[in-house]
Computed example of a mutant assay.
Amino acid sequence: MSKSNRNLFFSLYWLFFLVGISTVLVGQVLPILARRFSISDSESGYFFIAHFAGSLSGIFLYNYQAQKSNFIRTILLGICASATGILLLNADSQVICTIGFFLNGICAGANIPAVNMLVAKLSSLRVSSSLQVLNFFWGVGAISSQPFFHALSSDGSVLLPTVLLAGAYLIAFVFIYSHRLEEKTEESSRVNRASFWTVWRNPIAWITALFNFAHVGLESGIGGWLTTYSERFAKEGLISATPVFFVFFVLGRAIAPAIIDFFDDNSFIFLSLLVLLVGLVVIVFSSSYVGLICGAGICGIGTSAIFPANMARFAKIFYPDASKHATPIFVMGSFGGAITTYSIGYLSDYFNSLKVGIFVLFANTLILIALQMLVLLGLQFPKKDKT
Results as ranks from 00 to 15, higher is better:
Gly54Leu: 02
Leu368Arg: 04
Leu152Ile: 03
Phe307Met: 13
Ile255Tyr: 06
Leu33Asp: 03
Ile222Gly: 10
Val174Ser: 11
Ser288Leu: 00
Arg36Trp: 14
Phe270Ser: 10
Met311Glu: 02
Ala114Cys: 13
Ser334Lys: 08
Val119Asn: 01
Asn364Glu: 07
Ala326Asn: 08
Leu88His: 07
Pro113Trp: 02
Phe270Gln: 05
Gly337Cys: 02
Tyr342Trp: 11
Thr198Ser: 11
Thr327His: 03
Phe136His: 10
Met117Leu: 09
Cys97Val: 12
Arg253Ser: 01
Pro31Trp: 10
Gly45His: 06
Arg232Ala: 12
Gln372Gly: 00
Leu292Arg: 03
Ile171Val: 09
Asn352Tyr: 14
Phe262Gly: 13
Ser154Gly: 06
Ala166Asp: 11
Ala166His: 10
Ser11Thr: 07
Ser128Pro: 09
Gly378Tyr: 13
Ser144Trp: 07
Ala234His: 12
Val24Arg: 12
Leu30Thr: 01
Ile99Asp: 05
Pro320Ala: 08
Phe314Asp: 04
Lys316His: 10
Ile301Trp: 14
Phe137Pro: 00
Phe47Pro: 09
Asp385Trp: 00
Arg232Trp: 10
Ile49Glu: 10
Ser157His: 02
Ser82Val: 12
Gly156Tyr: 02
Val158Trp: 09
Ile269Ser: 10
Val278Gly: 01
Thr84Gly: 06
Pro320Asp: 09
Ala363Trp: 13
Val216Phe: 12
Leu361Ile: 00
Ser2Leu: 03
Ala363Met: 15
Gly45Leu: 04
Ile293Cys: 09
Gly336Tyr: 03
Val281Ile: 14
Asn104Leu: 15
Thr228Tyr: 01
Ile99Phe: 09
Ala120Thr: 00
Ile21Lys: 04
Ile369Trp: 12
Ser69Ile: 13
Ser188Ile: 14
Thr227Tyr: 09
Gly109Leu: 06
Val375Glu: 07
Ile176Phe: 03
Thr387Lys: 14
Leu61Glu: 01
Ala142Asp: 03
Ile106Glu: 07
Tyr229Leu: 15
Val216Cys: 15
Leu368His: 04
